[in-house]
Computed example of a mutant assay.
Amino acid sequence: MSTAGVLLLALILDAALGEPRWLWSRAPHPAVLMGNLIGWCDKTFNTGDLRRIKGALVMLSLGVLSLLLGAILSAFGWAVEMIIAAMLLAQKSLVEHVGAVAKALRHSTDAGRASVAMIVGRDTAEMDEPAIARSAIESAAENLSDGVIAPAFWFLIGGLPLLLLYKITNTADSMIGYRTPRHEAFGWAAARFDDLLNLIPARLSAVLITLPYGLLSKLPDIRNEARKHRSPNAGWPEAAMARALGVAVSGPRSYEGALADFPFVNESGRKSLSANDIEAACRALWVTWGVFAALVFALWLVGF
């Protein structure tokens, strides 16, 4: 079966099943195994001098290991590729986690804070309803790119080897790719390589979000808005999602008690957000997924 055909089946399987508790309560998820490996590397090698070099060597080793493992697993046939690809996509689970914030927020602001704290890294204790909704929408857009479009893109380009390479890099970036005293040097390679691997998928995600909303002509504006974001890539899907929903995202927020005065993305958009806007973002996630699945289907038809 062609690569696009395998990916289409993986997308459908993930959308249908997500991350079933009956399975992952009995066996470790591949992402958990990746996280455990990266955590061990951090504990073992992130010491002493030359931490940037050590971090780069760790990422090189993890990358080679991922490529080799992907090649070995691919030899077992397209069904194995499909199942593993479905495990490493996150469409349904993303919608469920974001949707849970809307449900909690409808119950109370405190419940909304507790729910959004599970999907974002910023301080949530003082968030009001618009800040909770904004955070959930940003997470929806960024994780659509990181958790669905990017891994699927790299699978299309290079099958399981490149999919595993992307996932180990993205997981490493989420764990050690921070500008903190402990990780600024050791995690430098992980952060830079993740930026590189997300360069195309983030922009593709923006296009896919804008297509069903008739906003392709706004891509130059989205590009300008994306440049306001602290990330070279995350701003693209966030700016596109903000345009699609007619809202403003990003803006000031607090990390570890310190206020970060980030600019708003799509500042002219509506800022008084609610659970309704989170649910609109969930619908946008599915609409975008549908557009992408249709694109993959078209690639399958032409034998990609």
Rank of each mutant, 00 (worst) to 15 (best):
M1K: 10
A189L: 02
R182N: 05
L208F: 14
G77T: 11
Y213T: 08
L65Q: 01
S25H: 11
G235F: 05
A114E: 15
I222S: 02
A16Y: 12
L60T: 09
L89M: 14
W289H: 15
I72P: 03
G269A: 08
G251F: 08
D194K: 00
A10V: 09
G35P: 07
A294W: 10
A189Y: 03
L68G: 08
I222G: 02
D123A: 03
K228H: 01
W22C: 04
W300H: 07
Y178T: 07
I12R: 14
P220N: 03
L273Y: 09
P263A: 02
L215Y: 03
W300E: 12
L9A: 15
P151Y: 04
L162R: 03
E267Q: 11
A226R: 00
R106W: 08
T124N: 05
R270Q: 14
P181A: 00
A280M: 13
I83P: 11
K218D: 14
N224G: 06
L68H: 01
S25I: 00
A114R: 15
L89D: 04
K271Y: 05
Y213A: 13
A10R: 09
T109S: 10
H183F: 09
A10T: 11
G214P: 09
S66Y: 03
P212I: 12
S254G: 02
G290I: 14
V64H: 02
E225G: 02
L215V: 07
A150Y: 05
A90E: 08
I149V: 11
G246R: 08
A16T: 13
T288S: 14
T3S: 11
E142M: 04
T288L: 11
A242I: 04
M1Y: 10
L301I: 06
A152L: 06
L245G: 02
L11A: 07
M127C: 03
S93V: 13
R203V: 00
D49Y: 14
E184T: 12
A294M: 15
E19L: 10
T109G: 07
E19M: 10
G303Q: 05
T47H: 14
M175A: 08
I84G: 07
L196D: 04
A125T: 09
G214H: 09
D195V: 03
A150C: 07
W300S: 12
N276M: 10
R230V: 02
V148F: 14
F262R: 08
P151C: 06
V116L: 06
D195G: 01
L164Y: 05
R26N: 12
R52E: 15
L62N: 04
V291F: 08
P28Q: 12
